[in-house]
C-alpha cells in the first residue's frame, strides 16, 4: 500500500496535482466565488483550448525539438476556418476538416525541411512562424472574419450541462487520442524513442526522418484544432489568434514533467500544467492583481518547473551510469 502511494507521488502528475489541490483549496477558502458555476465554466473554457495548444508543443518536445510555429499554424488554421465559412459559405464541419488539413500541411512542411536538411527545429520553425503569420496577414489584411455561423458560436459558448461547456468535448477527445498515440501506437512510440536516443532508434531500424515528419504533422493538426476551438469561443476569426501561445505551450508540458531533451512527456501532467496556469490567471483576476503579473508568474513557474526537471534528469542520468 505504502509502496503504491510512493509510486504515485513519484509520477509526473503528482506534483502538479498536489499544487492544484492545495492551491485551489486555499483560493476557494479565501474567495468562495472561485468555485461558482460561472467561474468554473470560465476556467474550463480556458483549459480546453490551452490543453490542445500544450499538447501540440508536447509532441515536439517528446521528439527532443521545439516548435516555435505552433501559434502561427494555429492562427492560420483559425482564420482559414472562419474565412472559408464567411467567404465560401462552407458548412462548419467541412471548413473545420479543411482547416485541420492546413495545420497538417504546415506541420508536415516544418518536419520535411527539418528532416531533410538536419537544421535545428528551432531555426526552421522560427522561419516558418514568420511565413505562416505573413500568409495569415495577407489573407485577412489584419481584419477579423466576423460572420461565424450561430452553430459554431453556440458550440464555443454554451454548456453541455452546467457547468461543463461544449468545448470540453473536443479537448477530452484530443487528450485521449494523444495518450493513445503515445502509448499504444507505433508512431507515438517512435517519436519518444527518437527523442530518448536518436542514435539507438536509428540503429534499431526506425526511420528517424519520417518519424520527425510525423511528429511535426501531428503537432500541426493539434495547433489547427486549438485554432478552430478558439474561433468558436471568440465568435470571430481574429488574425491575432496564436500570437500569445508560445510561452504557455512550453510551460504546461514542462510543469507536467516533460524532459526538454526529449524522450519523456506526460499527457496527464501536461493537462494539469494547463490547469495550474489557468488557476493562477484566474486567481490574479479574482484578487484584482495587476494582469502584468500573470506574465511574471508564468515565467517564474517555467523556471521553477525546468529546475525541478533538471534535477530529476541529473538523477536519472546518474542512475544510468551506476555500475
Amino acid at each position: 500500500m505504502n509502496a503504491r502511494i510512493l509510486r504515485y507521488l513519484q509520477s509526473d502528475w503528482a506534483g502538479p496535482f498536489l499544487i492544484i489541490a492545495i492551491g485551489g483549496g486555499a483560493i476557494a477558502l479565501l474567495k468562495p466565488t472561485f468555485l461558482s458555476a460561472f467561474n468554473i465554466q470560465v476556467l474550463l473554457l480556458a483549459i480546453s483550448v490551452n490543453a490542445v495548444i500544450a499538447l501540440s508543443q508536447m509532441i515536439i518536445i517528446g521528439i527532443g525539438q521545439m516548435n516555435l510555429s505552433v501559434g502561427a499554424i494555429g492562427g492560420l488554421a483559425a482564420i482559414s476556418f472562419a474565412g472559408m465559412m464567411q467567404v465560401w459559405e462552407l458548412p462548419p464541419l467541412i471548413a473545420a476538416i479543411l482547416a485541420l488539413l492546413i495545420g497538417f500541411g504546415g506541420g508536415l512542411a516544418n518536419g520535411f525541411i527539418i528532416a531533410r536538411t538536419g537544421i535545428s527545429a528551432f531555426v526552421i520553425t522560427l522561419a516558418s512562424l514568420s511565413i505562416f503569420k505573413g500568409i495569415n496577414l495577407g489573407i485577412t489584411k489584419a481584419q477579423p472574419f466576423y460572420h461565424i455561423p450561430d452553430s459554431v458560436k453556440a458550440f464555443g459558448n454554451t454548456v453541455m450541462f452546467d457547468p461543463i461547456p461544449w468545448l470540453v468535448l473536443p479537448m477530452v477527445v484530443t487528450v485521449l487520442l494523444v495518450f493513445y498515440l503515445l502509448t499504444r501506437q507505433r508512431v507515438g512510440r517512435y517519436i519518444l524513442a527518437v527523442g530518448g536516443n536518436l542514435h539507438a532508434a536509428e540503429l534499431s531500424g526506425i526511420s528517424v526522418k519520417s518519424t520527425i515528419m510525423w511528429a511535426h504533422a501531428i503537432s500541426g493538426i493539434l495547433a489547427a484544432m486549438a485554432g478552430i476551438m478558439l474561433v468558436a469561443r471568440l465568435q470571430l476569426g481574429q488574425p491575432s489568434i496564436g500570437d500569445d501561445w508560445l510561452i504557455l505551450s512550453f510551460a504546461a508540458p514542462v510543469i507536467g514533467g516533460a524532459v526538454l531533451a526529449g524522450g519523456h512527456v506526460s499527457v496527464a501532467g501536461t493537462v494539469l500544467g494547463v490547469v495550474i496556469v489557468a488557476i493562477i490567471t484566474q486567481a490574479l483576476v479574482l484578487f484584482e492583481i495587476d494582469p502584468f503579473l500573470v506574465q511574471v508568474v508564468l515565467g517564474g513557474l517555467i523556471l521553477w518547473a525546468v529546475g525541478i526537471n533538471r534535477l530529476r534528469e541529473v538523477r536519472f542520468q546518474k542512475s544510468l551510469k551506476r555500475i
Binding site: 499504444r184 501506437q185 507505433r186 512510440r189 519518444l192 524513442a193 530518448g196 536516443n197 542514435h199 539507438a200 532508434a201 540503429l203 534499431s204 531500424g205 526506425i206 524522450g263 519523456h264 536519472f316 544510468l320
Partner: peptide, 23 residues
C-alpha cells in the same frame, strides 16, 4: 555495436522489438 544503443526510458521488451512493435 560496441557502444550501448538502447532507449533508456523504454522497457526491455519494447527495446528488443522496437522496429517490430506491430499494431
Amino acid at each position: 555495436h560496441q557502444e550501448r544503443n538502447l532507449i533508456p526510458r523504454f522497457s526491455i521488451g519494447e527495446n528488443i522489438l522496437l522496429d517490430r512493435l506491430g499494431g
